[in-house]
Amino acid sequence: MIFEFLQPISDDLLIDIHKNSNQSLAKKVVFHTEHETPNLENNTIAILGVLENRGNELVSIEPNLELLRLQFYALYPGNWNVTIYDLGDIIAGNTLEDTYFALRTVCAALIKKNILPIVVGGSQDLTYAIYRSYDKLDQMVNLVNIDSKFDFENGQNTLISNSYLSKIIVEEPNNLFNYSNIGYQTYFNSQEEIDLIEKLYFEAYRLGEVSQNITIAEPVFRDADLVSVDMSSVKSSDSGSNNPFMPNGLDGKEICTLARYSGISDKVSSFGIFNHNFSEKETLLLAQIIWYFIEGYHYRSKEYPIGSRENFIKYIVPIEDDDLVFYKSDVSERWWIEIPHNSLNNKLKKNTLLPCSQEDYLMATRQEIPNRWWKAQRKNCV
């Protein structure tokens, strides 16, 4: 059914793609073509484009992913054993809502089959459609946004791509459990928006924090379901994009590291990249971001959910009138902290484990309550 919404890869583009080396990604991917529809298997990855920019009226360039495909499939794969499909593109519908419906339908079908969609957009409001694809999966959703802005804006002249998060928070059914922003720049966000992040017990990490110690972002991705990347979060000297010109932002190495953290997370089930300008320079960076995400996916350790916890060391830290319970993996040496089920209104209805860092454990031993634990505890009781 989903192929009704997808425009296959053209024969002319396939000819150019297959001119690459037999060792390149071009020979490792199953394509949806004008003559062949792939038989999708579970536990795989599917790349799809969405040729829709109407959510950002400042972008006048028509979306075209041919250059991205040429550059991505010229790269060489790692030692990967995952099957990768290129399903082609969702073309813009008669209305923006039509495009949302198509993307929501396709992503829902893929996620239900444990096929991870890598969505390459147009405008970032398409994140909303991916979020809505979780509606029928009976789960709360953790959204992580790599962005210089929170996209909470409201007002008569506000672009949809700058306000879609408000739509996610307000609209029913409300399946959003947590929102985290990686790399925001304070001067792009009003104090009202920053205060709202705190009021809702969401998480936000400033660009300076991430650049100084990028590993603080890893636990955040480990608990994410949907990761959305705004390419304008990358500074222009690294992305090659001058529309808009960004003097500050993540560099190329940092955005690829964050993409790898996203891929290596056992919980992430969808990944989207938006707001790029389809130039040759930025497209090459975009291809490498996708490459690093798939590289991370290959190294997933299957530690979420933890299950029996046989391969974990349990640490109990007495603090104030409570005990904080930590678990450390013998395999990956990653850390988790337990969030107790202590409220009748608890959204999760059970004790749950929140990814954390070793620094969070060390803070607890100094009788300091980790900020991630405190916010999760407060959210659990709301």
Results as ranks from 00 to 15, higher is better:
155 G>C: 13
317 V>A: 13
314 K>N: 11
208 G>C: 08
196 L>P: 06
207 L>A: 03
21 S>A: 11
376 A>P: 09
14 L>Y: 01
351 N>I: 02
337 I>W: 02
84 I>F: 02
308 S>Q: 05
66 E>V: 12
287 A>K: 07
365 T>E: 12
253 K>M: 13
123 S>T: 13
131 Y>T: 08
148 S>W: 01
251 D>R: 05
232 S>R: 01
217 A>R: 10
165 L>F: 08
335 W>T: 08
16 D>N: 12
35 H>P: 00
89 D>H: 07
377 Q>S: 15
241 S>D: 03
104 R>P: 02
32 H>P: 03
143 L>I: 06
334 R>S: 03
325 V>K: 10
47 I>M: 07
141 V>Q: 04
380 N>L: 08
16 D>E: 12
142 N>C: 05
105 T>W: 15
97 E>S: 03
100 Y>V: 12
102 A>D: 00
17 I>R: 06
22 N>G: 14
202 F>N: 04
95 T>Y: 09
92 A>C: 15
318 P>L: 11
84 I>S: 00
69 R>W: 04
94 N>W: 13
345 N>R: 14
153 E>N: 11
217 A>E: 05
13 L>A: 11
250 L>P: 03
225 D>G: 13
157 N>R: 07
300 R>C: 04
273 I>Y: 05
50 V>D: 06
111 I>H: 01
76 Y>M: 03
43 N>Q: 09
190 S>G: 10
173 P>L: 11
241 S>I: 02
216 I>L: 11
291 W>T: 00
259 A>T: 07
157 N>Y: 14
173 P>G: 14
15 I>L: 15
272 G>I: 03
239 S>A: 13
220 V>F: 02
204 A>V: 04
220 V>A: 09
211 S>W: 07
371 N>C: 11
144 V>W: 02
28 K>C: 05
85 Y>T: 00
147 D>N: 03
224 A>S: 01
375 K>H: 09
368 E>C: 01
41 E>V: 04
132 R>D: 11
84 I>G: 02
244 P>R: 09
14 L>F: 09
87 L>C: 02
6 L>T: 12
162 N>A: 04
164 Y>P: 02
151 D>N: 14
264 I>D: 00
70 L>C: 12
87 L>E: 00
83 T>I: 09
126 L>D: 03
31 F>K: 08
129 A>W: 04
14 L>E: 08
70 L>Y: 11
110 L>H: 07
24 S>E: 03
289 I>P: 03
256 C>S: 09
335 W>Q: 06
96 L>N: 04
37 T>V: 13
145 N>A: 00
161 S>H: 15
251 D>I: 02
196 L>D: 07
126 L>T: 04
180 S>Q: 13
236 S>W: 03
167 K>T: 15
71 Q>H: 15
301 S>V: 05
340 P>R: 09
274 F>A: 01
243 N>S: 04
101 F>M: 09
93 G>S: 13
151 D>V: 02
267 K>H: 09
379 K>S: 15
258 L>R: 02
223 D>C: 15
282 E>C: 02
266 D>E: 09
237 S>W: 06
342 N>A: 07
84 I>L: 06
217 A>S: 05
52 E>G: 11
237 S>F: 08
239 S>L: 12
169 I>L: 14
7 Q>G: 05
3 F>D: 03
70 L>Q: 08
313 I>R: 15
219 P>S: 10
60 S>K: 15
343 S>R: 15
46 A>S: 10
336 W>K: 07
219 P>W: 00
138 D>F: 06
62 E>C: 14
